[in-house]
Amino acid sequence: MRDTKNERGTIVKGNIAILGYGLSAIGPGVGIGLIFAAYINGVARQPEARGMLQSIAILGFALAEALAIFGLVLAFVFK
């Protein structure tokens, strides 16, 4: 995929599926932020519940992250 030059600069070539990955990363980004905000709140209020909250937070993080991972994989699938 070689870039070709015109008189004003370059024509940017690339794969538009990567934009799809960017879009699919928005939702999980917000979601993961919310999950860890809730986790921090919970630990701040009740520090002794940290161990229990941690595994729940990481579980939620993993589930929310799945959508971004789908987007990434599909960006490479639809080349």
């Binding site: 070689r2 870039d3 070709t4 030059k5 600069g9 370059t10 940017v12 490479f76």
Partner: peptide, 21 residues
């Protein structure tokens, strides 16, 4: 920066971005 990188890519071999291959 796109112009700089583009001109860099245009002359010489050019930078091959790593792919899944």
């Amino acid at each position: 920066s796109l112009n700089v990188l583009g001109s860099l890519a245009a002359d010489g071999g050019g930078f091959q971005t790593p792919t899944s291959a």
